[in-house]
Amino acid sequence: MAEKLKLEVVTPKGAIVSKEVDIVTAPGYGGEFGILANHAPFLSTIKIGVLTYKTGSQEETLMVSGGFCEVSNNKLTFLVESAERGTDIDVARAMRAKERAEKRLAEAQAQKENFDRTRAEAAMQRALSRLKVAERHKPS
């Protein structure tokens, strides 16, 4: 029996996940990274994206927005601004958000406005991650 990792996902609205898991994959600063049990102490910032964790053969996904994570003593803590499960995601709304962000991006590109562009990009990222999480949730 492999050792387990205690995963906690905490947002300002309280803890979303608190359970023992085998492996966690998260969108880090330098790209996706995986964490297994007995990982060295580690601290990284988190980008908007999809967080996946697995217990046995059961896999679950969460949409997370920016924050950071800390690993120490087989405890993995994610401090993020928001986290959503696939079941909580409104696909239609995310789709609309995506279209809106696409339009904004195009506009920003045309006007070369940097501020609007970063905002639109963040919105786009959020919408895409939401859709991805919702998509993965569907088959089960």
Binding site: G28, Y29, P41, L43, S44, T45, G67, F68, E70, S72
Partner: peptide, 22 residues
């Protein structure tokens, strides 16, 4: 202070840049 030395990604400075406003 129980935790030992951490691996930081990116550097501590860059993490601080994100953390301080947060």
């Amino acid at each position: 202070s129980s935790a030992g030395s951490y691996i930081y990604e990116p550097s501590t400075e860059e993490i601080m840049e994100v953390l301080l406003p947060l």
